[in-house]
Design a protein around this nucleic acid. Structure first.
Lengths: 337, 337
DNA sequence: CTGTTAGCGCGTTCAT
DNA sequence: ATGAACGCGCTAACAG
């Protein structure tokens, strides 16, 4: 490890001067700066961020906080895409990303401030925490620059990025309605997620806008899991044969519904239209391919990063951004008959 | 930020005693330790890892070094699975993972030691670097605990984890041979990857073991990319109609080959058997589903983490591990006719 | 058993 | 324009 001390020794200047020269202070002779720079280059000096952080209180590290990233998470590249987005943006501005995978139980052992304080994180991006997770409340209450993904809360140090959930849902429902569907079921995720809440409300609104009465019996939950979606859809489809379309709050669940339909010999899209949400890779490859609302998680990641850095650098005051989604029509949806 | 100083003030002991009490030193009165612990709990103290690292020279951070994680990387969850594995293991032993995404060009601006030194990384896991990437050489030469994924180099501070590439290839070739295939082509990745080298050699060996002469014309490259694979396969299949089976060094490429076959109206598996490598999610969902060699990248990740920590803690001396793969037969392969 | 002193590598007054 | 001295939060050597 070569330190500024080494450079000081090498050049004959004091560590102070070296520090200032390297940090671009104006009160240093350009000639000495050149000498010091050359020496740094020669010795392959690189600042010790730890020491730097310790004194400046800035770590140049952004934490990406996600819920329990485990073996099963793999199927869902949503998180991965967000991560890639964050990683890419953060790299361009010379920050580092640290991945923090937590669970509700682990949040009881260590507070949010502790996690953040331990490594002097400059900012945090939160993805996938449950509505009532302790860290969420703490993060919002704290004055640490925080950006939430898909949770619309904003204050002076908290921002969020999400996509136009309401609009997307309405687009889907109207699309189905135009195809003649009257009995449009909605498979939601679970109640711990903000998006579930929002999408549900949007579903209700959309129906009322097109004059279809909301029916509680057409709402059911798939927990954002393929297996769970499969099971509940199986029973649901048996019981409610009048349903001609199911809108799923995630593609993973749509996959499960598709499977259930297949086993019940319900033809898709002739007898049942299925529409998903997310546009995960698989939707394009399964047969029939699945119509879905395309989100752009990668962009969610880059924008989130941009927003945290804005908050950190106290740039604008608007700390939220809403991305556009797009309905992609594939084989799994068609006219009602 | 509450520091040991605060605890010292709160309890009346010196910072040293606090430090020692909290770090479990034996030379401290159990009673005072209890007092100090209680105070720490009360104040929600959490050690500042930066300061700790600065003096102990240990950061409890493992770097995961990957090549340029960008938008396009998303299709290939291999990296993501490895990452999940690393993240999970590392969390259990109270370490943190930092993701470092680099490119060949960026490696010229900053040396490996600089990257590592900046944050006092305790160890590094390397995945996907090219054979001639500077960081690879530097990492192996350095004395920083390093574990390479799929690159079999070992020394006192370098280990590796990979899967039984040779065995897998042989299994595939023998399987195809048993099905009556004589003209078995091999689509390799690109020459920058170690695995390409190894798999190619294994391909040659397997052929000779079953008495089929190696034919240079049956080897071609798909660069580990779907599009590239599609294009080269298209031309290849046109030119070499005698080929009855193609073994691809990655599923992504198998996807491309499948597409080419489809467009050329070559039936799979009747006219052409296709076998991939990796067992990515899609192989199960496309039609026909793709036979492939199943790797377990998640485990690659956990084992890699375990190995780095072994090296860090100077546990055993064997710093490599080879995982088993498994040939999964699906619809894309069948008897030659 | 406990406190004092020193120092990790760096940025930052405050003199000069 | 430059340097000496101090402190960030912490651990480690040495006394006592």
């Amino acid at each position: 490890m070569v330190t500024i001390k080494d450079i000081a020794k090498d050049t004959g200047f004091s560590v102070t001067t070296v520090s200032r020269a390297l940090n671009g202070y104006s009160d240093v002779n350009e000639e000495t700066r050149a000498i010091i720079r050359a020496s740094a280059q020669k010795l392959q000096y690189s600042p010790n961020m730890l020491a730097q952080s310790l004194v400046t209180k800035k770590s140049k590290i952004i934490g990406l906080l996600v819920t329990d990233l485990k073996r099963e998470s793999v199927k869902d590249n949503f998180v991965f895409e967000v991560l890639c987005g964050v990683s890419e943006y953060v790299t361009t501005v010379d920050y580092e990303m640290i991945l923090i995978s937590t669970t509700t139980s682990r949040q009881r052992n260590k507070t949010f401030s502790q996690v953040v304080g331990e490594r002097n994180l400059d900012g945090v991006i939160i993805q996938g925490l449950k509505k009532d997770d302790p860290y969420l409340t703490e993060a919002v209450a704290s004055d640490l620059p925080t950006v939430l993904i898909d949770i619309p809360i904003e204050n002076s140090t908290t921002g969020y990025v999400t996509s136009d959930q309401v609009d997307s849902v309405k687009t889907v429902i109207k699309y189905l309605s135009r195809l003649g569907h009257k009995k449009i079921a909605f498979m939601n995720g679970h109640k711990h997620a903000y998006v579930s809440e929002i999408r549900f409300k949007a579903y209700q609104e959309s129906l009322s806008e097109i004059g279809i009465p909301y029916d509680d019996n057409l709402l059911f939950y798939g927990d954002f899991e393929e297996e769970k979606a499969y099971q509940t859809a199986f029973n649901f489809l048996l019981a409610r044969q009048e349903v001609s379309a199911i809108f799923c709050a995630s593609d993973i669940m749509a996959l499960g519904v598709l499977q259930a339909a297949r086993e019940l010999r319900i033809r898709v899209p002739e007898d049942l239209s299925i529409i998903g949400f997310d546009n995960i890779l698989l939707t394009r490859y399964v047969s029939p391919s699945i119509s879905t609302v395309a989100q752009n998680p990668f962009e969610l990641g880059t924008v989130a990063s941009k927003l945290v850095l804005d908050i950190i650098n106290q740039k604008s005051s608007e700390h939220h951004q809403i991305l556009k989604n797009k309905l992609i029509i594939r084989e799994s949806s068609g006219p009602s008959n």
